[in-house]
Write a protein that binds this DNA or RNA. Structure first.
Lengths: 234, 234
DNA sequence: GTCTATACAACGATAGAC
DNA sequence: GTCTATCGTTGTATAGAC
């Protein structure tokens, strides 16, 4: 039995979650179609992708507030006036990015619940799944983490609630294992928070992992194995 | 034997590191005295403290880039023109904050090396010491973590180097324990990075710890105990 | 040392031609 | 759909009175 989902499983992730390619951007398009003036999906999606990716490049390098719309115009090749056919305002752009990512995460972690009954396999699936999500949507995660302060109170709270919900999924799996006599753990809440912290490192500390040549698979494996040690498994 | 340093030890930390009170701000003052036009230490320190604390309040709430000097003027009660007697420029203010904190951390972790010979006690001291530092200088740590992007390349690199040096101190203690037959661990580098990540949570996720009513002592203890489990201690 | 007044560059956003 | 031209605002920073 492999410690990491097979290649085919990774492909299945991508298909099931529509995390990349046309399907992904089509979803992004449909999610804030209402806020745009552009009717043609073909041209809208192409420019939307340009705008989002340029935003990640600029904002993740010098910060969203420090990035001007003139920077964004230069980077995308779309004029200042043209940008406003795609976004309502600068703040709206950040808000949409957070909304799209949260919507996706919400959908995916909703599927994770009750999918596996064995707590060990459940924890493995949560860790591998989340690391994989972060890997594919790296700039989205990093942007939302670093720019959360700039969003409105309500949206900030929704992001924090999502993190708490994720922690709770880990806690539930841990508690199930304890009831089945497979784990022992004094403080499941703190342990779950520590797992979440380690998962978030995968987008927060890319500089460190590239320096130490740590692969996604090795990192997920490391988190999982140390978690089992902390749970006194076997 | 207590699991956490005694009250007297905590007091000793404060005295030894001059982390708060007049002594601390006197050091801050002396560290960038050259960049100021104010001669009188008495008035300079009082206003310097006002400026730094107002910066933390504003920047940690809405981001340093989003904070204007007009905001800072209002918050401190010092006029726009007056501010420039204390700071060279807005960016200089952020740069000084990072410099002061890095200087302090550097000094403290320099003392941690070779202070304890027993690897278990060494790891405990590093974890407790760092959590304590973060507790006392919470807004400084948070500011430097979130606003690092806004600083110049060279200064960013120095901050990353400091984190790598901290990781290496943890790795050294782990390796010492392995050689002494006390620990077993496949990947000390990744384990050290995970400890650093958990320590940083203490300033990054205050909202979560307050919600779950986790004390500084309980959190340090939790990190330490799980580390020993990951190291197969005993 | 601290203030008021102001310079002037850069910002987000919009109007209207094409 | 996309552009250029421009609006009003706000930003950082400074000069000079007190």
């Amino acid at each position: 039995m492999s410690d990491w989902p097979h290649e085919t499983t990774i492909s299945a992730f991508k298909r099931a979650w529509a995390l990349e390619g046309e399907a992904f951007w089509l979803t992004v398009f449909s999610m804030h179609q209402e806020k745009m003036q552009i009717k043609s999906p073909k041209v809208a999606i192409a420019n939307l992708q340009k705008i989002f990716e340029a935003t990640f490049k600029l904002a993740n390098a010098k910060g969203f507030q420090a990035m001007s719309l003139r920077d964004l115009s230069r980077e995308t090749g779309i004029s200042m006036g043209g940008l406003y056919a795609y976004i309502g305002s600068k703040n709206d752009l950040a808000s949409v990015i957070e909304g799209v990512l949260r919507n996706y995460i919400d959908k995916v972690i909703g599927e994770l619940v009750n999918e596996y009954l064995d707590p060990v396999e459940s924890l493995r699936a949560i860790i591998c799944g989340e690391i994989f999500m972060i890997q594919i949507l790296n700039p989205w995660y990093y942007f939302c983490y670093m720019e959360l302060k700039g969003l409105e109170r309500e949206q900030q709270q929704q992001a924090l609630d999502l993190e708490l919900r994720f922690d709770r999924i880990l806690v539930d799996a841990i508690r199930t294992g304890i009831k089945q006599g497979k784990f022992s753990c004094d403080n499941p809440e703190l342990l779950a928070a520590s797992i979440t912290a380690q998962l978030q490192q995968w987008h927060l500390k890319q500089w460190k992992f590239k320096l130490q040549e740590v692969s996604m698979e090795a990192y997920a494996q490391h988190i999982f194995e140390n978690l089992l040690l902390c749970l006194n498994h076997r």
